[in-house]
């Protein structure tokens, strides 16, 4: 297969045709901060945190195909500050009470905030009135924490391929709908996977919680993205 030569912040990288900038960067051990992306799912480009610049033009690394000669700008101060701003927007859009959340320490939104050392968002808290939907079979939907990454929409399907989750409405009123009937039919394994895929504490599997204590969780000691490049040469 032909090879694509490109650079990320000056580092020479090799990609293959069909790869996105994100995939190619990861394969070269380069971390591009991301949130809605999930390995194996079709990219959604909804959080925009993986925005990079190519020839000055901003584009989402998760959806943009890599091409020959691309000079990708990734860790510039400007982009990093804008990414931080997006994390802050998501924090003020919902009600993220980290101390009360089962996902705290395993939460990717929080992990990005840690990475960016967010002490307080630059935006005012919106404190939206949101609900908890408890009747999704083995799952409950904590709308206060949903960041609309669309991971559940993209991945949780019934055996015959029907979507269990889907976007409803639009504008700032948009939310993720759950077909309760279909959700109640999800197996224990499906429910567990749905919870694990949710980057925040919005989709939770009932009857389990705080198995691993705070302080010993994924991002408590290790920043998000630390694993990238560990295995690369």
């Amino acid at each position: 297969m032909s090879k694509i030569k490109f650079t990320v912040d000056g580092k020479a990288c090799i990609g293959t045709p069909g790869q996105t900038i994100m995939e190619a960067a990861l394969a070269n051990g380069v971390y591009i901060p991301a949130l809605c992306r999930y390995e194996g799912l079709k990219p959604a480009g909804s959080c925009r945190i993986c925005t990079v610049r190519v020839g000055g033009r901003p584009m989402a690394a998760c959806t943009q195909p890599v091409s020959e000669g691309m000079a990708v700008e990734n860790m510039s101060q400007e982009l990093e500050d804008m990414r931080k701003a997006l994390v802050e927007m998501l924090f003020v859009e919902g009600n993220h009470m980290c101390p009360t959340c089962e996902k705290s320490g395993n939460c990717e939104l929080q992990a990005l905030a840690y990475r960016y050392q967010m002490l307080v968002p630059r935006f005012p808290y919106q404190f939206p009135a949101r609900s908890v939907e408890p009747t999704g079979g083995r799952l409950l939907f904590e709308y206060n924490r949903c960041i609309q990454c669309l991971r559940c929409v993209r991945s949780v399907k019934t055996k015959d391929g029907k979507a269990v989750f889907g976007p409803l409405g639009r504008s700032e009123k948009k939310k993720i709908g759950m077909d309760k009937e279909l959700a109640s039919k999800l197996s224990d394994k499906d429910a567990r996977e749905a919870m694990d895929r949710c980057p925040v504490g919005a989709l939770l599997k009932k009857e389990v919680g705080f198995v691993i204590p705070i302080g010993k969780r994924k991002f408590d000691k290790t920043p998000i993205g630390s694993d990238v490049g560990k295995t690369a040469s």
Binding site: A44, G45, S46, C47, R48, L86, M89, L90, V92, E93, F123, P124, Q126, I147, Q148, P167, G169, R170, S171, E172, K173, K174
Partner: peptide
Amino acid sequence: FIEESCGWCAPCRVGNSLLKR
């Protein structure tokens, strides 16, 4: 713009309301 945003991406969905505020 706030009314007409499709809401798919975070900057447009959240940012415009913050800007208006």
